[in-house]
Design a protein around this nucleic acid. Structure first.
Lengths: 258, 258
DNA sequence: CGATGGTTTGAAGAGGCTCAAATCAAGTGG
DNA sequence: CCACTTGATTTGAGCCTCTTCAAACCATCG
């Protein structure tokens, strides 16, 4: 998957990415000079289940999905990787997942050996990786909680609440327009179904049910406007998520509605 | 929760617990001399959501549940803590959960300040904590995967597969008798329902459905004999779990059937 | 023996899955 | 520019499962 056609990274300034922001210059320089940027189109597979992990990756742009294929053909998504997330550095590496691009994506790769070597000598890098893992653990539990809703509308509402609380800086997922919040649903209905443990048809019906109840408005299949955040949080079972939405972090829409 | 009535640990030999097995003598000694053992009865709360984490805990015996209470009164269990699991050392500590004893349990506590101080000076301890977190992440994803089954029988089968693959050393959950595998279900139906995103009634029905299909035999409400592991794995969606069951690790039953 | 907490069973209804078909948007090639 | 293909989303109808509410059952403990 990750091979010769990676470009040495001329535009690969790592400083702006959260995990690398606090690194000392020496380690940062070594990483920057050795990184390879590669682009993937939506649907392309980055890492197959069971592949040897020869590289460590960092998401520069786009959204990746970590998924598991079950023996009966079902697939389940166990997590999304977004801006600044690092993957492939699974130390003990017990479980393995397939990693696939959910949207067009731009990834920065490092040779695993190089990366491990740098980590040996840089407590900052090691600490950054620890933080990365903790963030993943937190997210995994968030997914678990929304999966605990038995109604699909609740799970979908929970998905939106997660986007609202954690995806403020990601791509153009969140935008505010006329003071109202809009969400660009960044993944397909199929992926959403795999993520929420349901079917595309049920997802579609649930979305329209939320619209009928007046919690949101469907502007396009992949774009919704939030009308009643409180009710949305309540539908999801809340757990104190509504309060964590930071409107200030969300940039006003730049693009015309089209 | 954790206060004066903790006993200094005369029987607190930490070496036998996985996370501490590789520690250098100095750190181990410091931990052993400062640890406090406390017992909890089934249902007691160890840490309330939002409590300040003044102590780090390590499970010596029993099973704890990490749970989240939702605004509509529902509860959901996001993980179980068993033998040798460490909790309360949530570095960045973003999300908080309530921790409650699912069975009678024996916990070993350390002052948080002491623990953090030791970790500063002991890369081995830090590494052990990293491994602890990776294990938790792995488990969280396992739970996610079994939650993705839409039928309760599938989720229950998945729960059994997790017990079979990961709980070999825990308490007396797994036993072999006459060459056949028996599982002591270590948590109540209510907890099982909270864990699998269902209701106690559905859990009960699903268990009996598995018996009717001949996959297992219910010996007591909390004790089942596995009759067809292949079929059980298939029911759970497999994902290669059946192969990971290590019969060799499971001790023969010592106690009479009663 | 009567209380109590956990488990099981029963019946009715809501909700989600399945399969099938309609709709829609975006490309492609003539 | 239009017809046609392609892929994704939506809608519809019937069936199956799970939830809900209620009651029965069962073991344990005063």
């Amino acid at each position: 998957m990750v091979d010769q056609d990676c470009q040495p990274g001329p535009g690969c300034t790592l400083r702006e990415f959260r995990p690398f922001a606090t690194l000392e210059a020496e380690t940062l320089g070594a990483l920057e000079s050795e990184c390879r940027v590669k682009r993937f189109r939506k649907g392309e597979t980055l890492i197959r289940e069971g592949d040897a992990l020869s590289h460590v990756g960092c998401v520069r742009q786009g959204i990746l999905k970590m998924q598991k294929s079950l023996s009966d053909g079902r697939q389940h998504i166990v997590g999304l990787l977004v801006d600044s997330d690092v993957f492939g550095q699974e130390f003990g590496a017990l479980r393995q997942f397939e990693i696939e691009a959910a949207t067009d994506a731009e990834i920065c790769f490092f040779e695993r050996d190089l990366f491990d070597g740098l980590m040996e000598n840089s407590p900052e890098l090691e600490r950054a990786m620890l933080m990365n893992i903790l963030r993943e653990l937190d997210r995994a539990r968030d997914w678990m909680i929304i999966l605990s809703c038995q109604k699909v509308t609740g799970r979908l509402a929970g998905f939106f609440m997660i986007l609202l609380t954690q995806f403020a800086e990601v791509d153009h997922v969140l935008q505010s327009r006329d003071g109202q919040l809009e969400i660009r649903i960044p993944i397909s209905r199929t992926d959403l179904a795999h993520l929420l443990g349901s079917r595309t048809e049920s997802i579609s019906r649930a979305l329209h049910a939320l619209e009928d109840e007046g919690l949101l408005q469907i502007l396009r299949p992949d774009l919704v406007r939030i009308l009643d955040m409180e009710a949305l949080a309540a539908e999801a079972g809340d757990a104190g998520m509504a309060g964590r939405v930071r409107l200030a972090d969300i940039r006003p829409s730049e693009q015309p509605r089209s």
